[in-house]
Nucleic acid binder design. Structure first.
Lengths: 230, 230
DNA sequence: TTTTGTGAACTAGTTCACAGCT
DNA sequence: AGCTGTGAACTAGTTCACAAAA
């Protein structure tokens, strides 16, 4: 009945790279840093200090250093970070130094839009396939040319094409059913656009984008603002 | 910082209601609670305890109580919360007890998909208009019938139609330009799908959904898992 | 009883500030 | 000099645990 209180496991971890769970806030920021570095490299900047990076992109210098230092000593004291090097390290940390294939389940408006979304292609992601259960969609392609397959072929195509990430863009009612199929196909990382909480095994990483929650949160802000305007 | 303490609510909650900034994590959860209550009401449940709510939707009971108690005393000790009542209170807190009109800027794949996204319509949001700068898109409609206007008419239509929320679905390159137009039109709440950080005045609430960051964060998880599998 | 509402305790996350390297 | 990497201090967020209410 009562949860036994964890007695503080000693976590030595002297030499970095321990596998204690990295916070999602941190991994999100790594991705942001990489984007910033891409911009800097495009602008011909060779080296950047955490301070300059923070100032330019409205971040916190200490946080940048901490985030990076967690994975290694990438900086040079007195100099900063070499843009090219740090970019390479970040790409490696984020696992972007290999081609990642993505399947989108749900070839409705949203699924089709995501399939052709240019941002996904940029950092080495390849939208390999769309999946749907509607017979008249199967066999078609998105405008950008991503083929639509039958959802029943998911497992087969995931294996065959080395797909490692799934994006869920199906109606709420079928979301759990679809995610069970995705999990059964062996995929370990899922980006979900369906509303509501989905259940996945612990070894599957589920990240949800809830558009309704986002909008309602904005509505809250407006409601508060209205009544407190001076 | 402002210090005006105002008892603002028209109806419920006797004490509480200081205006210190409510965390976004909290407002997001309020939206989640509302969705849970909708489900419960649909299932004919009349009353629910924080514990039961937590168990059923995998939340924490104390957190539910804290979140709610912040806005008033909505519960009944020994009983729990009346589903219907709490739903009404949450809708009022979230500002959903009025029709909120939304404009989507960018009538590309993503903008069109969002315009017809059923989840937005559910809780009283009305997608009033799409905006684009391409002449051949202006005058058309989304599949669901949302008209596409010229971006130059944004300010006029925002005022005329009482639009209070904008959704940004334009390419990265034009995002800041577009958001400046949106801000100039008087809109105070923005949901942004463009990558990168955008600048807005302090009185404008900007909420960003960064699809690239989400995917790269998943990639990180996969990269870690691969190398630490036992 | 049961269950809320809430201070206290705890945990996570951020920022400071400085030793130490270049 | 300049800047990183990092313990310490601080702040935010969550969970516990219990007094009080129905």
């Amino acid at each position: 009945m009562k949860r036994t209180n964890k007695p503080l496991p000693p976590r030595p971890s002297k030499a970095k790279q321990s596998l204690d769970q990295v916070s999602e806030l941190t991994t999100n920021r790594l991705s942001v840093y990489l984007r910033c570095l891409n911009q800097l490299e495009g602008a011909g900047v060779r080296t950047i200090s955490s301070r300059a990076l923070a100032d330019q992109f409205h971040l916190n210098a200490a946080q940048i250093r901490k985030d990076l230092a967690y994975f290694g000593e990438f900086g040079v004291r007195g100099v900063g970070y070499y843009v090219r090097d740090l970019k390479r390290h970040l790409r490696q940390i984020l696992g972007l130094d290999r081609r990642l294939r993505v399947a989108i389940v749900g070839a409705g408006n949203l699924g089709l839009a995501l399939a052709d979304y240019p941002g996904f292609r940029q950092e080495g992601f390849e939208i390999a396939a769309l999946f749907d259960n509607l017979k008249d969609k199967v066999g078609q392609r998105s405008r950008g040319g991503v083929p639509i397959h039958d959802i029943h072929d998911l497992k087969k195509l995931v294996r065959h094409n080395g797909i490692s990430i799934a994006v869920i863009a199906v109606p709420e009612a079928s979301a759990q059913r679809v995610i069970d199929l995705v999990v059964a196909s062996g995929i370990k990382a899922v980006l979900n656009f369906s509303p509501g909480a989905l259940q996945v095994p612990r070894d599957v990483k589920l990240k949800s984008v809830d558009l309704t929650v986002s909008l309602e949160s904005l509505s809250f802000y407006l409601a508060r603002g209205d009544s407190e305007e001076s």
